[in-house]
Design a protein around this nucleic acid. Structure first.
Lengths: 343, 343
DNA sequence: ATGAAAGCGCTAACAA
DNA sequence: TTGTTAGCGCTTTCAT
């Protein structure tokens, strides 16, 4: 490694190299204020030649402005959050704001740590998954003095703004569709995740609707860890061995649903005649399966986009905290695919 | 939103609230230096009650120490980088270092921008995917004055340290295995990504070995965008329609390979008798498929772990740039699965 | 064990 | 259009 320089360059170095005052160099590099074309060119040439990289730490401290948006999500491993992220970064690009991602692993203590860590960099805004946070986290968010958007869920009390779907409603609508097609002996397969509040809300909405119509879930199966596709197979086999009469399987996510679908097709089960299936999320993967699994789209990209828009808009305001942000409830879209219609 | 406070709290606020000098408060909060138990307790109580969040910007400026490691990767959308990331953050946790992720979308200009942006926060180290960077990027990395680890690939010239596999060798070994099983009419299916150097190196290694043995690829098919699983189906159909005699399909990633596998099984093709298949990456998903697709593991998790270890170790050194870091070449592991043996 | 002073590299505000 | 001065909120260093 050709170590060109131990000490990073400062504005002063550029100033000396170009014979222009630090202040003017700063102006050129930020594109603010009036600078003559000649000076501008001279400074830019010098900065570029030296390979000057500004020190945002100093800049941020001096201006008390940080172009960072903290994005706090539970996981990167399941395709849903990367899509949200991509919605966020698309909309943020061009606003001068930059997303910075923190991952909580669905653990509240971890969320607290990550949040503290990120807030200590004084970001311009926070986008955080879910409405359930520890007391300490809620307090930090409320005091942070920046716009906060809670995403993915609107069943609850936002601290500030929120963008998402109602998972209770998603569960309810799925139940409605399933009963509507005449399925009655319904099994549920999900994650063993007491802290995945959104999965739980879907489950609640689902069972509540069944109950209202005088039905209930006949059997259920939970898993944790491992390859979701494989777990979907195994759970499907397990639940059908235990309760052979089931005519519908509702999976808490598309990946395990896809595993179940592949398993049942191999077994030669008539889908959706003998058994109907549905998942949740609307992941792209489904398009390549032998049958299109019924699912419900959580509008992940759109959630990210809208959240980013809210942050960007409020950061542009003179008083970003003038009033609470909006609560935007998107409508989850049922896609019956090939596995949820008996007609 | 109950806006408790407009101005974030400072050390001074905690100092006043606890009746202890700023300096001592700082010592308590950082756990450095000798502070009496009584003072410590008093300060901690005050800070906690007020909900003080330290200002790292000021801290970093004053100490010229930043506990951030910049991690720059091409994409979050394909399961490979999330695994690398999780390896990184596991190993970094406990060292006091925090990963910060930037995404380049396989675009060199974007890489340059992201890198500049991250370096402007003066991170303690950089982990960046690939060995191919623009001149400007290489210059920035070389001048950054911090350890740099280039990951995923070791076929080339690292700036400083590197951890990865040889993709040429991965391609070569796959070719060897395929020819070894007697397959001769080989088709290649990949991404239309001139900037995915690693995919290209695998391809080169693959074709070079075939050539050495007097063979060559009979047909090929490329795609871009869309659901990889679905594209895998479509490409497989396309290539076999055009060139029906193929007896092996080598896919540049497991996802399109999985799509091809599902397609061929549906068509009733004898796998691996009539046609053999192989992908690349060793993704978890494969475990749930009807047949285990042959693949080659890129050791993603391990790459992340080793890269993080290198950074952590060198950051702990008095002179992190004393000498160039190591180049660690991991051995890609061939997994023949169920689709690459005729025996 | 605690405090006081100086300054990290930049930018806001003002002066020229 | 350009330069000067005074901090931003912390930590370093040195004194007590």
């Amino acid at each position: 490694m050709t170590q060109t320089r131990q000490r990073p360059l400062t504005l002063r170095d550029v100033s000396e190299a170009s014979g222009v005052s630090e202040m003017t160099v700063s102006r050129v590099l930020r594109g603010k204020g009036d600078v003559s074309e000649a000076t501008r060119a001279k400074v830019q040439a010098a900065a570029k030649k030296m390979g000057y990289v500004p020190n945002r730490i100093a800049g941020a401290l001096a201006s008390s402005r940080v172009n960072l948006v903290a994005v706090i999500i539970p996981s990167l491993k399941n395709m849903v959050f990367p899509e949200v992220l991509s919605g966020i970064s698309d909309r943020l690009s061009g606003t001068g704001l930059q997303p910075v991602v923190g991952v909580t692993d669905y653990r509240p203590e971890q969320e607290e740590k990550v949040l503290f860590e990120m807030l200590s960099w004084r970001p311009s805004g926070v986008i955080i998954a879910g409405l359930e946070h520890s007391e300490a986290s809620r307090a930090m968010l409320a005091r942070a003095g920046v716009p906060v958007v809670e995403i993915m869920d609107t069943d609850g009390d936002p601290i500030d703004a929120a963008v998402g779907i109602s998972h209770r409603r998603a569960g309810r609508e799925m139940a409605e569709a399933i009963l509507g097609q005449g399925y009655r002996k319904i099994g549920f397969l999900g994650t063993k995740m007491p802290l995945d509040y959104r999965a739980r809300k879907r489950f609640e909405g689902f069972t509540a609707y069944l109950a209202k119509k005088g039905h209930e879930i006949v059997d259920q199966e939970f898993y944790s860890g491992g390859s979701a596709l494989k777990k979907g197979r195994e759970m499907t086999e397990a639940i059908l061995t235990r309760t052979p009469g089931l005519d519908f399987l509702y999976y808490s996510n598309d990946m395990i649903g896809a595993g179940g679908l592949l398993y049942l097709l191999e077994k030669g089960v008539d889908i959706p005649g003998q058994i109907g299936l549905a998942g949740f999320n609307g992941v792209e993967l489904l398009e390549g399966l032998p049958r299109q699994l019924a699912t419900m789209d959580a509008c992940r990209r759109e959630v990210g986009e809208k959240a980013a828009d809210i942050i960007a808009a409020r950061c542009a305001l003179p008083d970003p905290l003038g009033e609470d942000g909006p609560v935007i409830t998107l409508a989850p879209m049922l896609d019956v695919g090939d596995t949820l219609r008996r007609s």
